[in-house]
Amino acid sequence: MSMDIKIEELKDKSLWEPIPEEEKMGAEELTAPQVTFWGDVWRRFRKNRLAVLGLVLLVIILLFALVGPLVSPYPYDKQDYDAILQAPNLAHPFGTDYVGRDLFTRVMYGARISLAVGFLAAMVQLVIGVLYGGISGFMGGKVDEIMMRIVDIMYAIPILLIVILLMVVLGPGLVNIFLALGFFYWLGMARIVRSQILTLKEEEFVLAARVLGASTKRLLLRHLIPNAMGPVIVTVTLNIPNAIFTEAFLSYIGLGVSAPMASLGSLASDGVEYIRTAPWLMLFPALAIALIALAFNFVGDGLRDSLDPRLRR
């Protein structure tokens, strides 16, 4: 390719003059493109079709759960004995149940509870988990040793069993579910944050900041927390479906919210008995749980991929 240059072409004298700085090409690319870290993450997230789909789904679900019940013509607990076990139709898009309640409204209420549980789980992880793991990792030594032994022991305990027991003791109800979940949902996060802090403490730039005399607070705020952010966010997102499942499971076995309130779990549980005669009673709540979990999983996966430092370049 370079061989097809003719000597004639090279005779142009101007070609052989020093090049002015502004005529240099590709020089602007020499400095790495100035994108912020989060701008970069967002750019990669946007390219992931499933992740975007998850985000859109999540927004739609949120809208239905928050606004839906307010505009629905049927209260969630209104029984209508003239409209029992109706199949999905225009008036009742998801049909009605065995006492004529509108399933669509009830599913929207259930989604509300699911999302509330998800939110709570996220909060518990972000507050207790991050604090616990952060303190443990940052303090190191004996404190770390003891704090992590406690986590190890709690980790070895089958959590769901204790949650079930707690619910038996505390009695059914949303607040009690929050309490029972709150007890345990920070364990994994504590471990992750701690290991993040430990690796980051070894990193050169932190050492360098130390050498330069950065205060502990500054080190924490400017270096450690922003860098540990990625795994934290991914873990939170991917753990939300677990919490939602646990609530649904508890409601399913009769330990969750009590009637006439509806959770997706108790709706599905009620529906199972009608699976031959009115399958929609089971199908729609099940679909709703699956969609919510799917949305969070898509978003979480997308976040993980776009935050992965190995894919970053």
């Binding site: 070609l15 052989w16 003059e17 020093p18 090049i19 090409m25 590709g26 690319e29």
Partner: peptide, 27 residues
């Protein structure tokens, strides 16, 4: 250089103290 869109001509020209016009035009 950015390896996806490397400088045209001699790839070293943006950093080269002796760069001439031809360096940005021809390999």
């Amino acid at each position: 250089p950015n390896m996806i869109a490397p400088p045209p001509g001699c790839r070293f020209h943006p950093r080269c103290p002796y760069a001439m016009r031809i360096c940005a035009k021809k390999i």
